[in-house]
Design a protein around this nucleic acid. Structure first.
Lengths: 340, 340
DNA sequence: CTGAAAGCGCTAACAT
DNA sequence: ATGTTAGCGCTTTCAG
């Protein structure tokens, strides 16, 4: 990279002049038109691009804002990313330009390849989302030189923002129990995720404790997408007797499942009731509308950045909730029991 | 903000020592445990936070990557933001850490308040998305000191990545014409957006040119959301005779509209056919599935960052498509005409 | 084991 | 109208 001095040399002026011209202060300093032209030309010839860190260091007026990186995997579904960012943006910190947000994409299970995390040279702190079990294992054995907040994961030695996934699973099982169901099923996305794992465990263990049967053929695994949910539900309906109710661990798959049932003439909630997870924006507009466990993504995102800001800069006193509660949003695919 | 020298003073060591300790090089340099402790304590007491720009300037190994800001309004729907980011992330530039992506939220119509754009001190270039007419007016009268790429907007003096919205509108009108419809309608989101405006004009003008009627009561305006689409469709169905086909300018509203029709027993596509816009992830799973104009958000996002990188650094030779084509994805709400 | 000093690329104040 | 120079806050030799 060529710098301002190279331009100065090429244009036969001093670096001060170059800086002035390049920053549009030519007028103020009444620099000769010919000189300006020479400077611009040299800059162009050298492919000059200002060094932002250097500029900011010198300018200093906004040198004070902490830089925060958001590690997000690029293979996850867009809608959650959107909701998460919306939550981040809604946080007062962002609105007042109190932090600078850097997006740092990483590949699932490859967090270890992100050296910027290890070196800590590019940002003051990081929010890590979508960590797989492998990523968590990596985190457990490194000692990062900067504060980190995990989103939807928990790992010794790290702070987290999350919901109690296990409890969410229990809640759904309890709902099915209250409705008097005996045979229940679940559809799980095929991903390595603590969150999914816990939801599943909470559901299955509670179901069994309450005397319901979660038969092996009623436990389906498929891709984390509408299509995956469709396939899983298709397999479910082509086989043995249906369960009375089905917990689908993410809305996207639930939406696909509803389609599969409808195509096969299986009535929801008549023959089988369905509960999704996430309470995504589209859940209210499926047919039938989808009962779903509401995940407060936006609030959690805001909490994550708040917590991180506090870790970076203990001066601020922000009370931050670190574990959020979920609740079931009742719609038609699994109507509310009034006398629960 | 206190710096490394303050710590040095407080801990009675030199700044070199402080730096070494803080960067975990205590071991390598065999610095006394007591000294380390003093340093850490002083750092904590002073609420020390490293100055990232300064550190990067010095470290210099990654000082070369251009910094790019993405201006996005926080009041837009999440799903598009997610798709856009996914597209950005999928670009080779991002994958190879060839750029540093900064998220810069701004309030609709308030782009003028973002001084970082004017000063150009925080990044090398910017992608501006969701600009309203007011924002464009602002852009037309300032002279920004850095390269800018507009997403889905066009404005003299700026480069853009976009689709031909007008042509998209025409395409839908032509489809309706080919199907032999005479009375068509449209639902428009209530936002200030060139893109929406152009789609609408393209549709209406072409419809009229082809001899179809777009009656005043068949032109609805409502909120940019499922709910808005629902309300608009509800008004449409409670009034005068329905149009034969309806162009809904965004999928979210189309999804709401389908719900409204179903609740009222109006058959789609039997009594009215519906075409949406965006081809969002959920469009395949509505009832009936939604025919929609596919917007190549992901590819456009990748093109936007590619174009910007090229503007920042003319050295790179990347061929960038600046205008993308849309196409209609046929599903059940408006089936394909075979002999078109 | 620790201190002193140079310099990253840039801007701004001060000279000329 | 342009050149000179002093740092911004930090890391990193190099001397002790």
């Amino acid at each position: 990279m060529s710098g301002i001095r190279d331009i100065a040399k090429l244009a036969n002026v001093s670096n001060g002049t170059v800086s002035a011209v390049l920053n549009g202060k030519g007028d103020a300093l009444r620099i000769a038109a010919a000189t300006r032209e020479r400077v611009w030309e040299a800059a162009r010839a050298l492919n000059y691009r200002p060094n932002i860190p250097a500029r900011r260091l010198r300018t200093a007026d906004d040198t004070g804002v902490p830089v925060v990186a958001l590690f997000w995997t690029w293979d996850t579904r867009s809608s959650l990313m959107g909701r998460f960012l919306k939550g981040i943006q809604s946080s007062p910190l962002c609105q007042e330009n109190g932090v600078e947000l850097l997006i740092q994409p990483y590949a699932s299970s490859c967090l270890g390849k992100e050296l910027s995390l290890l070196r800590g040279t590019r940002f003051n702190g990081a929010i890590i989302a979508n960590a797989t079990e492998l990523d968590l294992a990596y985190l457990s054995q490194v000692n990062l030189p900067l504060p980190v907040v995990l989103y939807q994961r928990s790992q010794e030695g790290y702070r987290s923002i999350q919901v109690d996934h296990y409890a969410s699973g229990c809640e759904v099982a309890e709902l099915f129990h209250a409705k008097g169901f005996r045979q229940v099923g679940l559809i799980t996305p095929h991903v390595s995720s603590q969150a999914i794992q816990l939801r599943q465990e909470g559901f299955v263990e509670t179901a069994e404790r309450l005397g319901m049967l979660v038969a092996g053929e009623h436990r389906l695994l498929d891709a984390f997408s509408e299509q995956g949910g469709y396939e899983a539900a298709a397999r479910l309906s082509s086989g043995p007797p249906l369960p009375e109710a089905l917990f689908v661990l993410c809305d996207q798959m639930a939406i696909g499942a509803l389609t599969a049932f409808r195509e096969r003439g299986i009535e929801v909630p008549g023959q089988i009731q369905v509960v999704g997870y996430d309470d995504s924006e589209g859940a209210a507009f499926t047919v039938p509308s989808l009962t779903s466990v509401h995940l407060p993504v936006e609030r959690m995102a805001a909490a994550a950045i708040g917590l991180l800001a506090k870790l970076i800069d203990p001066g601020r006193e922000l009370a931050v909730i670190e574990t959020f509660a979920t609740h079931i949003v009742y719609r038609n695919s699994c109507p509310e029991v009034k006398n629960l």
